[in-house]
Design a protein around this nucleic acid. Sequence first.
DNA 1: AGCGAACTGGGACATGTGACCCAGTTCGAA
DNA 2: TTCGAACTGGGTCACATGTCCCAGTTCGCT
Lengths: 198, 198
Amino acid sequence: MTRIPAPERRVALIEAALRVVSRNGIAQATTRAIVAEAGMSLASFHYAFDSRDELIDELISTVIDRTRGAVMPEVLVEGTLVDVLEAGIVRYFEHLKADPEHEQAMLELTQYALRSPERHPLARAQYARYVELAEQSLAIAAERSHSTWTVPVTRVARTLVAFTDGLTVTWLVDRDDAAALAVAHAAADALSRMAEPR
Amino acid sequence: MTRIPAPERRVALIEAALRVVSRNGIAQATTRAIVAEAGMSLASFHYAFDSRDELIDELISTVIDRTRGAVMPEVLVEGTLVDVLEAGIVRYFEHLKADPEHEQAMLELTQYALRSPERHPLARAQYARYVELAEQSLAIAAERSHSTWTVPVTRVARTLVAFTDGLTVTWLVDRDDAAALAVAHAAADALSRMAEPR
DNA sequence: AGCGAACTGGGACATGTGACCCAGTTCGAA
DNA sequence: TTCGAACTGGGTCACATGTCCCAGTTCGCT
């Protein structure tokens, strides 16, 4: 009924799609399901997007852009590097626990992108973004703990991303908080060895 | 043409399904695709299985049972615990590189199982199996390096699984061998701190 | 107010898919 | 050798899904 210009509709559809993917998985993110979630008619979908694929691609791009420093955001703690790192990872874990479906959706989108050569770059971009954010956090962490990375920060960041990823996948499966915290501790420990006091 | 008893057919279909999932992803593992891969007719499928869901469930169970000590199998190296651990993880990494599609399939099956409450236990079982295998490997590793775990082995194992999982996901995305080896190194380092010389 | 373009709703179509059915064929046991 | 059950192939059904079309409606501009 209400007229909405196409660009806004694209945004609304992407939001709706993310909700559907989070709630029901990407396999259930059909055009009809997305449109229902957005409260629109099917025609509006193809007025705003050429195809479902186009929407999914934009969805992935959007979540990449939107990914803020969830991984170790503003590190609040002052202290040893290990402590700062662990606090950061634990904070990410809290974020994961607060919205597991979202992280699960991210994982699914990655898997999805990995499945076609044309979309593979999207998955790479997603992880490049993760690494970028991790790098920033690690720089801050070193700062706060008066340390210097003895290994290129990018490499440390890649490792951090791998660790948090593993933590995410395993926790999504077993929901074992204590185990996840143990992983966080071990990961922080490993990372801290890549720096020295300044 | 050739008559094949139902139980054998089930096995053949599961094998075929695994190949299809590895090659094209679980979304493409339709009854028709599986049947074509197995060189059977569609009717044979529903003669052997009640439904596609039943096959997928059995597929997951099968891969769980079949999962051998890919994660740090017979640890060959003698040496420091770190070295033994790293060698084991690197060996897993070689396995991953040798057949990336298989590990990707495992990941997809997990994600798939995670999406429905009835199947969630399958995902848990899969990871429980991983942890079990990791535990065995870790016991051997401690043995070989004359060390003792100072933390319950199960917890160490869970952490190892998380680490290798993270390594897997990130490597599947960026195919960065050097980065993966760095993760392996860091992971081995972290794990080795959970033991002491005997 | 009037006009053209932007937008909307409902329906339609082709295709893919899971499930099923049934008439035939083949095998093993009696 | 015969007979019944196990098995097979091909066709079919219902439904979901991506895409499209078109007649109508609404808006911004003149």
